[in-house]
Design a protein around this nucleic acid. Structure first.
Lengths: 247, 247
DNA sequence: ATACTTAGTGGACAAGTGTTCACTAACAAT
DNA sequence: ATTGTTAGTGAACACTTGTCCACTAAGTAT
């Protein structure tokens, strides 16, 4: 039962000329003196970006709440974003386009994570532990993005699904070339490198899904998940020196 | 674009009494002489079961075609099943109920697979190879069921999602106790056994998703996926003898 | 100060949705 | 032969959905 009837809200309304609104808003809002906080939207580009983001966030929120991507409707998204349905088209030509924008956004945060993990790199022993830590921290900090990716990965539109798969595969390849620098993996074939990288990424992915399943902030469960993930990664790396590609 | 306008088709229609239909159908269908093939539904229970199955199959088909579970509508399902929307309620009280029925059905085939794999058990060397083979064979043979499970696992209704997760966890535990019988794993803690089992199941799951992604019957791609899966499993099992649970 | 651009409005439309209701005709049991 | 039971029908309902349209007022440039 989403909010349908809302009080006359924002934006421009024929009956009530702007003066009234502007006066109320720009002063009463909150201490808007020097830096404008957020209430008075000044430039047009700024305004545009604001509602665009509102649309993206609304979609993310609904997905985090359990709906799959292609179950959400243009109207419900605009409703949650506080704009009228037709305003949607000023920003995206269809829901699918919005989906692709979300893929972009989500992978941006994912790559930020990867960068951080790489910088914390050359601590040889605790590297696994550290990586897992970074992973769960990022999932906690950007829950909606990760929820979106895992949901949309096996849902709807094909195009979305495909975009995400591609990106993950790319991600895996990067990991593979990273691994290639390790002494133990010096002379592995590329296929075998891909194979291990895939295994690691799978484990990470499963870990993310497990964390997302946990009812928000049940710290013990989360801790256990990290512990298991660590062990799994350690186990895999343990096997690496023994590997002989031959059949 | 599902069939919307169909010729007056089945069931009872006020204007055209049954006789006409039965005659056309039970003869023209296919060589229906001794054993009734499928056209003339005799007992009532038989008829009931038939359309129930038609509903389930219709839902499966639409999901295999890419839609996520909670994106499909009661009406489109009944349409594809060749019955009128209201007939749906004779079998399920809601789409969610249908979903649960599908979970049942799908896991039945999955357990059949597990049984087969267990029976082919004690060939010590090729066991991994054999397991992967069984897996991909079953996926090929029951594509819709596997597609449903992987889709519904991260989509909609929460209840469905939960049911599937539970079932998979159970599945993992079974594998863990199976593993416990192996000599190498004799004295592992249960948590560590769960950990390895989880790793193996994750790999299997990822493999299934990979296969489902492959455009139907691209045998080379499929072969490559199996090969990689085999390697990954072998790699994991390679590490097992070296494992020491200590921190 | 004037004209242009544009983010957002509000009303309308056809189409699709889930669910209710009274119905019918085949089967089942007596 | 009569009487229930029941799987499926078909029309109607109150909504929701995506998209089109003309409109408005704030912001931008001249």
């Amino acid at each position: 039962m989403p909010v349908n009837k809302r009080a006359p809200r924002d934006g421009h309304r024929g009956a009530a000329p702007r003066a009234g609104r502007a006066a109320t808003d720009s002063r009463a809002a909150d201490s808007g003196r020097d830096e404008d906080p957020q209430a008075q939207r000044r430039t047009q580009a700024e305004r545009r970006e604001r509602t665009r983001q509102a649309l993206l966030d609304a979609a993310l929120l609904q997905m985090e709440a359990g709906e799959s991507f292609d179950a959400l409707s243009l109207r419900s998204v605009t409703r949650a974003a506080g704009v009228v349905p037709t305003a949607f088209y000023r920003h995206f030509s269809s829901m699918d386009q919005l989906g692709l924008a979300l893929v972009d956004e989500s992978f941006r945060t994912l790559r930020a994570m990867l960068r951080e993990a790489r910088e914390a790199g050359p601590a040889p022993e605790h590297i696994i532990q550290r990586s897992v830590e970074i992973l769960v921290d990022h999932v906690r900090a950007h829950r909606p993005h990760f929820a979106f990716l895992t949901r949309a990965q096996s849902t709807g539109n094909g195009a979305l699904r495909h975009a995400i798969r591609i990106e993950i595969r790319l991600f895996t390849s990067e990991l593979a070339t990273d691994l290639a620098r390790l002494p133990v993996l010096r002379e592995w074939t590329t296929e075998d490198l891909q194979m291990v990288a895939g295994l690691l990424v799978n484990t990470m992915t499963a870990t993310v899904e497990a964390i997302l399943d946990v009812p928000l902030s049940a710290p013990e469960a989360e801790a256990k998940i990290s512990r298991v993930a660590e062990k799994q990664l350690r186990l895999v790396m343990l096997a690496v020196p023994l590997w002989r590609s031959g059949d």
